[in-house]
Computed example of a mutant assay.
Amino acid sequence: MNYLFIDESGELGQKEKSSAFFLIAALCTSDLRALEKRLWKEKAKLYNAGWPKNVEIKGTTLWGADHNPNIPKEISSKRLQILEEIIKSICASTGKLHYSIAQKKFLSQSIMNADYGIAYNFLCGTLLCRAYKRYFPGDLEIVVDQRSKETHSKMKFDGYLETRLIGDCAHEGKLSIAHSESHDVLGLQAVDFLSWGLFRNYEHKDPTYLKLIAPIVGYRDDWYSSKK
């Protein structure tokens, strides 16, 4: 059984202050216990150091820890080191990260102007189908962040994805698609860190975390990321 955890960074809006890029990350592992154990160990270090239990441990919250007075100085002063340690630990597990990166202004207007969520469904379905045969054929359990800003309807997303996997990839094994809160699923928490780290490379021109993640990247679906 392969487990696939999906998260996104950026958004697909077209307003002036919207992100220039949109990224979907899919972390795949067949050894779920090993992945969970690694992330839980890193989280335990933070909780033992005084990280507040009501603040979710994510890339964004760690990055901005110095602006939250409830997070101990011991953590906020070392937040960049901690971020690198967590990402390195996740990458040391037996998993592969597949991702789709799109520079939004070069996507077709028909996709960008479609009903809310259509672009997300298309990019996510295309990524999974292109990575499927080489990286995760067979039984598949997919978990998507419940709070995804882009999935306009779980049923439309689930039905579309199932249709693509069966119709385009000839998937014949077991298939389940769940939508869960990230604070309840360690796999979603893991992919959040990787998605955040990759996004910084494209949106903020900060390659720090891409360099750490690159060794576990499987399929990269690139939609004009370097086009000028």
Rank of each mutant, 00 (worst) to 15 (best):
F106W: 15
E84C: 12
K78N: 14
I166W: 04
E85Y: 05
Q81R: 11
K133R: 15
N70E: 10
Y99L: 04
E150N: 08
G159V: 05
F122R: 09
I111D: 13
A170N: 12
L80G: 00
G138L: 14
N70D: 13
E74V: 15
P72N: 12
R164L: 11
C129S: 15
S148C: 12
I90E: 09
R147D: 12
G95T: 14
A92P: 01
I82Q: 08
M112H: 01
C91L: 02
I71E: 07
E162W: 00
L107K: 05
E150K: 09
G117Q: 04
T94R: 15
E162A: 13
A119E: 03
R164Y: 13
C129T: 12
R134G: 01
N121I: 15
E74F: 10
I142V: 15
V143Y: 00
S76I: 04
Q81F: 12
H152N: 12
I71V: 15
C91I: 03
K105P: 05
K73N: 07
A170H: 13
A119G: 09
K149I: 04
R134M: 12
Q103K: 15
I82C: 13
K104A: 02
I90N: 05
Q146P: 01
A102E: 05
C169T: 00
G117T: 03
D115W: 01
H98P: 07
G138C: 10
Q146C: 09
I87Q: 05
A92F: 00
G138Y: 06
N121T: 14
H98M: 08
I142K: 02
N70T: 07
A170R: 11
A92T: 02
S76K: 08
M155W: 06
I166R: 15
A102S: 12
K104D: 04
I87M: 04
G138E: 10
I86M: 08
L161M: 12
K88P: 00
L140F: 05
A131G: 02
K105G: 09
L127A: 04
S93C: 14
V143A: 07
H98S: 05
K156M: 09
